[in-house]
Amino acid sequence: MSPLLAVEKLSRNFDVHTGLFGREKCTVKAVNDLNFSIDPGETLALVGESGCGKTTTTRLLLRLQTPSHGTVRFEGQDIHQLKGAGLKAFRSRVQAVFQDPWSSINPRVRIHDFVAEPLIVNQKLTSAEVDRRVHEALDSVGLRPQDARKFPHEFSGGQRQRIAIASAIVTRPSLVILDEPVSGLDVSIRSQIINLFKDLQAEYGLSYILVAHDLATTRYLADRVAVMYLGSIVEYGATDDVFDSPSHPYTEALLSAALSADPDEARDEIILSGEVPSPLSLPAGCTFHPRCHRSLGGICQSEVPALMVRDNRSVSCHLHANAD
């Protein structure tokens, strides 16, 4: 089976002017040499803290930004080379759901028009057909047909997220990018939406790219996970493997910091020192070494660790380079 989406050596740099009057120029490596792929019907999660490049990655995948290097292939085609009809087809095959349902929905349009917009822009359909598709989409996210006439302010946060999801699936995409889709919602609503994502995946065979910082949610939704730190993937593998036996010290710390809602669960507390450094001045060598609790010293400070691939899992850490 060929992958639905394949990302190769994807990098994106931004030039930033700093100093007095912006005379000094430096480069932020927002995303650095990413490689991953997604099969149809699969969910890949990108996890990491703020500044790790999750958002830039999703923007590159949605073709909202052009890469500095590397390619994104969707169904075999480089999306950054697409034009005309090919681009329109891509736009309706790949959709997104964002974090905040209060700002992602235009408050001045009725739900019907908001949900129908991707259809009208990207596909030529009769208005009867558009109506039918909108009702079908609303139905599959658990809203009623009469809700189509309402305005966004008449809905609660959880319902608004359902509306955003309806608008994302109305074009029958094969890939939906979920950018922190439940972090703005209350706990009792969150589980409804997580289950909805699973149902839609089973029904339509959707692939998801989930961007999240909540590891427990990731575990429920994702088949594979890529842990990112300062623009690079530090660990990549099947979710259960990575969560059961994390290889990279950063993954370890991230898992230890995720508080489990179970007072009896034993956990080793790994408290990292400091915070994520500014992407403007990345540490030399392994970018994680200043905070690493397992640093080997010299080599971590001077050399960038190579990506070690073993049993469908890859880790970029000197600890594991030495283990062989």
Binding site: V187, S188, S191, N195, K198, A216, R219, L255, A261, E265
Partner: peptide, 15 residues
């Protein structure tokens, strides 16, 4: 309803 880091995955209970 809170997703757990360990143990059973299955379907989440909802309210």
């Amino acid at each position: 309803a809170v997703p757990k880091l360990r143990g059973q995955k299955g379907r989440l209970r909802t309210i």
